[in-house]
């Protein structure tokens, strides 16, 4: 099992290198720094000097992959590839266009992001799994059919409408919580409750339907028939036998997103004005701050890969066949 985890860990390295390379290609090769400078400076101020100045300010004036002019090791390190891409492995992301240090910014924005993402994740998982179990318990009844129809309808509504509708109803019409904003400490609760609820409600449709099919798949297995033949009650069959086995596929989908919770939610944070990483990303996209977008792409991938590793490990916890082989 340890060999298995080490192997997965080793496998992560080439993937991270691949991600890094893709971002490098995307941000520096598809468009040269000159192109980007020209676009950012706008048509009016484009002079060769302005472009050079813009590049120098951001360290884009170096050669791409090989600096023949530099001495020694710097031939390889004093380049855009090394400066902008390889340094990301050390979590050195450089500065944003507004001059702030990206790593510091990310650190300070992680808190608010997690404050929404964690409750959403836990509550969402609990609610959807319970709802799916309920549907499965009442399978082949009108309740089940109605529930599935509800799920399909719910997943046919764009996430934007959940947010807009929720904000409008709860904050504006009923005036229950502030429409947007954020503060640290316990005060945060009143700002967080609505985005969390909206996000949970918005996610029920697709997930509950998916979990329901997983449960139904399990419920037709032979060992469930065995469990019933033992005289166990339907609830016990459902919780002890079906749920435990269905957890294995559920885990693949769930554990992998846990690290990504750090990234926050783009839509919710921007709608609710929460200063997390999601809104940071959106703002960066809006202002075309490539350094920030590049950093977020890299962090997102690192977190995803961590998620994959966690998934592998969680497999060993729930599935004895993986653990003991």
């Amino acid at each position: 099992m340890i060999a298995y985890i080490i192997r997965r860990l080793l496998y992560a390295i080439p993937i991270l290198i691949g991600v890094n390379l893709i971002t490098f290609l995307l941000f520096f090769v598809v468009n040269s720094p000159d192109d980007i400078a020209r676009m950012q400076l706008g048509a009016k101020r484009v002079t060769p000097e302005a472009i050079e100045k813009w590049k120098a300010e951001r360290g884009y004036d170096k050669p791409m992959v090989w600096n023949a002019a530099a001495p020694g090791v710097a031939k390889a390190t004093d380049t855009i590839l090394f400066d902008k891409s390889v340094r990301m492995f050390a979590l050195d992301f450089g500065r944003a266009d507004d001059g702030r240090d990206i790593a510091l910014e990310i650190k300070s924005r992680m808190g608010p992001s997690l404050a929404i993402a964690i409750p959403t994740f836990i509550l969402g998982l609990f609610v959807t799994v319970s709802f799916a179990l309920l549907l499965v318990f009442f399978r082949n009844t009108a309740l089940d059919v109605g529930g599935v129809v509800l799920c399909v309808a719910a997943m046919s509504i764009s996430g934007l409408f959940y947010i807009i509708g929720g904000q409008y109803l709860v904050s504006k019409v009923w005036n229950l919580v502030p429409i947007s904003g954020y503060s640290g400490g316990l005060d945060a609760g009143k700002f967080l409750i609505l985005p969390v609820l909206i996000s949970v409600v918005g996610g029920i449709g697709a997930s509950a339907r998916w979990y329901r099919t997983l449960f139904l798949e399990e419920i037709n297995k032979d060992y469930v028939r065995t469990a019933r033949a033992k005289g166990l009650s339907e609830l016990r069959v459902l919780f002890r036998h079906v749920l435990k086995n269905a957890m294995i596929p559920i885990l693949t989908g769930v554990v992998v997103v846990i690290p990504l919770l750090f990234m926050g939610s783009l839509l919710l944070e921007s709608f609710f004005g929460i200063p997390g990483l999601g809104s940071y990303t959106i703002d960066a996209i809006g202002s075309q701050d490539f350094a920030v977008v590049r950093s977020m792409v890299f962090i997102g991938s690192v977190l995803y890969i961590i998620g994959l590793l966690l998934t592998d490990i969680s497999y060993t916890l729930v599935d004895p066949r993986v653990r003991l082989n």
Partner: peptide, 8 residues
């Protein structure tokens, strides 16, 4: 298949 794979 008649025994539950995740229970001892």
């Amino acid at each position: 298949t008649s025994l539950n794979p995740v229970l001892t």
